[in-house]
């Protein structure tokens, strides 16, 4: 019995059905990928641009997708790479303008207009943004998306043991961050 993903993959490979299948792929994955990117870059406008880049790159490299990994894993990898490249560019600009490292993440959060006003959630965002990038990615996938370690390992190319350590450290640091500010 074919899974929904494998059926979608087959239609993506067929030039006759590729375009319609890609529209379906966008509808299916735009929301999880959006939140994946948004939690990394914080800002809606940047996330919107990056999400479009992700799907453009996916469309242009569809032939390179061999089906060894799941479609979702492949798309998450592209999304993380896009977000990381964006953050590196921001950091480079920040270094050039001699700002402090923390100010970029903090500024992105404070300048974000699309928030619901929940103070606890805002504090958690600040705490997550204070983590090293890798720990942020692991924490977001585990805490918010409730992904299995095996799934995260496939996307990030890291061992399950290292991911568990990374998540544990992230939780401890967030806990400390919130306690210091309570």
């Amino acid at each position: 019995m074919k899974t929904a993903d494998s059926s979608l993959e087959e239609r993506l490979r067929d030039p006759a059905t590729r375009r319609d299948a890609f529209a379906e792929l966008i509808s299916k994955f735009s929301e999880p990928l959006y939140w994946q990117i948004r939690r990394m870059v914080q800002n809606h406008d940047d996330t919107n641009d990056l999400l479009q880049n992700v799907f453009m790159k996916a469309w242009q490299s569809l032939d390179m997708f061999r089906g060894d990994a799941k479609l979702s894993t492949w798309l998450h990898k592209i999304a993380i790479n896009e977000a990381l490249t964006h953050l590196q560019t921001l950091r480079r600009r920040q270094t050039e303008s001699l700002d402090s490292e923390e100010s970029v993440a903090a500024r992105s959060i404070e300048s974000d207009e699309w928030i619901d006003g929940d103070e606890a959630a805002l504090m958690l965002r600040r705490a997550v943004a204070s983590l090293p990038t890798k720990q942020q990615i692991v924490f977001n996938m585990k805490y918010f998306d409730e992904m299995k370690y095996e799934e995260i390992a496939e996307i990030t190319g890291t061992s399950v043991g290292a991911l568990k350590t990374s998540y544990h450290l992230a939780v401890k640091k967030i806990e400390q961050f919130l306690q210091d500010r309570s």
Binding site: R19, F22, Y34, F55, W114, D116, D118, A120, A121
Partner: peptide, 22 residues
């Protein structure tokens, strides 16, 4: 909760807008 929101109907219209760029 992430505390983050998106413009109304963002995800509903995203696929259509994206396909226009393809």
């Amino acid at each position: 909760k992430t505390g983050m929101t998106v413009p109304e109907g963002y995800f509903e219209s995203f696929a259509e807008k994206m396909m226009e760029r393809i």
